[in-house]
C-alpha cells in the first residue's frame, strides 16, 4: 500500500522517508521485510496525503456507537431511502469534529439525499460535489491520470461525481472518470470482495454512459462482462440494472439495423431475468420500469403462462 501510493504520486523514497526513517528502512518496509511501527506508518501515510489512524469509515475510534449509525447510513444509501439517509446524516453531524474526512463523508451523503429528494438542482449537485471532493482530493484529475489507489470512500465520491457529470450531460467527463477508476481497481490493491462490488457498479454506470452516447456495442459488452462477475460472485444488487441496460442497448442496435431482428427474443429473455431479479430483491421502481418498457416494446405482459387465467386452470 505504501509503495503503490508513493509510486502513483511519483514520489521518491528519499522524499517520502525524510525525517521519518532511513531510505533503507523504507525500502525494507515496502518489500515486507521490516516491521513498521504504527507511528512511522501513520507519518508515511499522512505525508502522502492519506489519513493514518483511521478505521472503518474514517471516523476516529472514540465513539463506537457511531459505527451503528454509519451502518444505517450505508443501508439507507443502498436502499435508495433518501429521507432516512438525510435523518441519519443529521445524527452524525454533532460528531464531525475537526477531521476533514468526517466533513467530507457527511457533506457527500447530505448532498446525495438533497439531490435525490429534489431539494437541489443537478447543476448545484455537481458544483457542491466538486467542492466536497476537493476537501481531500484537491487535484483529483491529476490523481486519476496517475492511477492513484483511492480508498473506498474516495472511490465512492468519484463515482458520484461521474454520475453528476452524466446527469448534467457531460458524458465525456463521466466516461473519463469511470474508465480511469476501473483501470485503477484493476491494479488489485483493494481487498477483493469490496473491489468486485465497486467494479460491478462502475461497469454498470459506464455502460449507462456509453448507452446515452449511443455507443451501444460498448454498453452491451460492459453489461455482459459485469453480469459474468455478478454470477461468479453471487451478487444480486446490480443484476436487474445490468439486464435492463443490456436489453435496452440491444434493442437500440436492432432498431438501427446493427443486430438481427431475431435477437429480439434475447432482449425479452434479458428483460424477464431483470424483472425477476428486481422482484426478488424488492426493487419495485425498477421492476415497474422494466415491465412498462417491456409492454411498450412488445405489447404483451412480461410473463406468459398458460392457461392465462387461473379460472381456466381450475377447470383443468
Amino acid at each position: 500500500m505504501i509503495r503503490l501510493t508513493r509510486l502513483s504520486l511519483k514520489m521518491s523514497q528519499e522524499t517520502l522517508s525524510e525525517n521519518i526513517c532511513s531510505v533503507q528502512t523504507l525500502s525494507r518496509i515496502e518489500n515486507g521485510r521490516h516491521h513498521v511501527k504504527n507511528h512511522t506508518y501513520q507519518q508515511l501515510m499522512e505525508r502522502m496525503g492519506r489519513y493514518g489512524g483511521k478505521s472503518f469509515c474514517f471516523f476516529s475510534m472514540d465513539n463506537y456507537s457511531l459505527l451503528e449509525i454509519l451502518a444505517q447510513v450505508n443501508a439507507a444509501l443502498s436502499r435508495n431511502a433518501y429521507q432516512e439517509l438525510k435523518n441519519y446524516v443529521q445524527q452524525l453531524k454533532p460528531f464531525r469534529g475537526n477531521h476533514v474526512l468526517n466533513e467530507q463523508y457527511i457533506c457527500k451523503n447530505e448532498l446525495i439525499a438533497d439531490y435525490r429528494l429534489g431539494n437541489i438542482t443537478k447543476d448545484t449537485f455537481l458544483k457542491e460535489l466538486q467542492g466536497v471532493v476537493a476537501l481531500t482530493l484537491p487535484d483529483h484529475e491529476n490523481l486519476l491520470e496517475r492511477k492513484y489507489p483511492f480508498l473506498y470512500e474516495e472511490l465512492m465520491i468519484m463515482m458520484n461525481l461521474a454520475s453528476a457529470y452524466r446527469e448534467n450531460e457531460n458524458h465525456q467527463k463521466s466516461m473519463w472518470i469511470l474508465s480511469l477508476l476501473l483501470q485503477i481497481l484493476e491494479t488489485g490493491y483493494m481487498e477483493r470482495h469490496k473491489s468486485i462490488q465497486v467494479k460491478i457498479t462502475l461497469m454498470n454506470n459506464l455502460a449507462k454512459v456509453y448507452g446515452e452516447m449511443e455507443d451501444h456495442q460498448a454498453a452491451v459488452h460492459l453489461s455482459k462482462e459485469a453480469l459474468i462477475e455478478t454470477k461468479r460472485e453471487k451478487l444480486v444488487n446490480m443484476v436487474p440494472n445490468l439486464y435492463f441496460e443490456l436489453a435496452w442497448n440491444m434493442k437500440q442496435q436492432i432498431e438501427k439495423g446493427d443486430r438481427r431482428e431475431d435477437e429480439l427474443s434475447l432482449c425479452k429473455k434479458y428483460l424477464r431475468q431483470g424483472y425477476a431479479s428486481a422482484a426478488i430483491s424488492k426493487k419495485r421502481y425498477l421492476q415497474n420500469a422494466i415491465e412498462q418498457y417491456y409492454r411498450k416494446c412488445f405489447h404483451e405482459t412480461i410473463y406468459v403462462y398458460s392457461p392465462s387465467t387461473v379460472g381456466e386452470a381450475m377447470k383443468d
Partner: peptide, 16 residues
Amino acid sequence: KQVMEQCCHIFYLYMM
C-alpha cells in the same frame, strides 16, 4: 396468481 408470479420469478432466476 401470486404463486404463479413467484414461480416465474424463480424460473428466471434459475435461468440466470
